[in-house]
């Protein structure tokens, strides 16, 4: 079973960010299924976790539904991450969620980055804000990032980019080495080794 987690940071309802997230998820599922993969999709709506994310920033640990979301992202075979553009970058809520993940939670995980904005002038936000973020986290951001300004929801170009990104996601999932998640409580370093530096 391929675990696909969709992280979406839209704040309004209905949300264009969620609409884009759903389109990307549907395209990714079709593409993965066409490649013979059964897919389990989980959508993480950050709006529902906003208080818990702030609490985590203050206490240092995730609680309740946020703990489940953090665990899901860490266990995901691929992530679709969609943010609205606020003040020329990802939203604060979106960034805060990735701030509270463990440093190695996204190691090697293919990430399809996407964003929405009221104007196409923000389109490079995905390249100058999201791509460095996911590179820093040692994720594997896909070559195609999908940006949608309001006007794009009426154009063929958007669904073409969605299809292309979904195809890249499938390729990345099929290529991904099945990483053995190291559990520090299972694979403890023997003390003699620590003593020898």
């Amino acid at each position: 079973m391929t675990r696909l987690v969709v992280v979406t940071a839209g704040l309004s309802n209905p949300s264009s960010t969620r609409i884009l997230a759903d389109q990307l998820a549907a395209a990714a599922v079709s593409s993965l299924e066409a490649a013979g993969r059964a897919v389990d999709v989980e959508v993480v709506e950050l709006r529902d976790l906003a208080h818990a994310i702030t609490d985590n920033l203050l206490t240092g640990f995730p609680a309740g539904a946020l703990a489940d979301a953090v665990a899901s992202v860490a266990a995901a075979d691929a992530v679709i991450a969609v943010t609205p553009v606020f003040s020329a970058s990802y939203s604060g809520l979106f960034k805060s969620f990735f701030d509270v993940l463990d440093a190695d939670a996204l190691d090697g995980t293919p990430v399809l980055m996407a964003g929405t904005a009221g104007t196409p002038r923000h389109s490079l936000v995905l390249e100058h804000a999201l791509r460095p973020l996911f590179s820093y986290l040692h994720a594997a951001p896909l070559p195609t990032a999908v940006f949608a300004a309001s006007e794009d929801f009426g154009s063929r170009g958007l669904s073409d980019r969605v299809e292309r990104a979904a195809g890249e996601l499938t390729d990345a999932v099929l290529r991904r080495r099945q990483l053995h998640a190291v559990d520090p409580y299972e694979d403890v370093t023997p003390f003699e080794q620590l003593l020898n530096g």
Binding site: G60, F61, Y185, V188, T189, F191
Partner: peptide
């Protein structure tokens, strides 16, 4: 830090977990 639990075990010393401010799972 699992290394510190390992250190306490190696020497047969005590191990203390702060326990407060964090979920008991840790």
């Amino acid at each position: 830090s699992p290394e510190i639990a390992e250190q306490a075990a190696y020497y047969g010393d005590g191990f203390f977990h702060n326990h407060i401010f964090w979920p008991p799972l840790h």
